[in-house]
Amino acid sequence: MSSVTLTVPDSDIEQARTVVPEAARVALVLGSGLSGLADIAEDACSLSYSDLEGFPQVGSVAGHAGRLVGGRLSGVPVALFQGRAHPYQGVSAHDASYPVRLAAALGCDTLIVTNAAGGVRETLSPGDIVLLSDQINLTGRSPLTGWAGPEGGTPFVPMRDAYDPGLRQSAVAAALETGVEIEPEGVYCGLPGPAYETPAEVAMLRTLGADLVGMSTVHEVVVARALGMRVLGFSLVTNAAAGVGLSHEEVLEAGRAAASDLTGLMLAILRGL
Results as ranks from 00 to 15, higher is better:
H94Y: 05
A259D: 11
Y88E: 01
P194H: 03
A24Y: 02
E22K: 15
G118A: 14
G245A: 08
G36A: 15
L124P: 05
D261T: 11
T198M: 07
G107P: 05
D39C: 01
M229G: 02
V218L: 11
T207Y: 10
V130C: 05
D43F: 12
D10C: 12
E250S: 11
G153K: 01
W147E: 03
E177L: 11
A174I: 12
E250H: 14
L37C: 10
S92Q: 08
R230A: 07
S170T: 13
N115E: 14
L73F: 02
S247V: 08
V91Q: 09
G36R: 13
R141W: 00
N239F: 10
E151G: 00
E201W: 02
A226K: 06
T154P: 00
M1V: 05
V29W: 08
Y88C: 02
E181G: 07
A62T: 05
G119A: 04
V78P: 00
S216V: 08
L68C: 12
G245E: 08
A79R: 01
P21G: 05
T238V: 13
T207V: 12
A105L: 00
V251C: 06
A23W: 00
S260T: 10
L227K: 02
A175W: 09
F156W: 10
D95E: 13
L47H: 11
E197I: 06
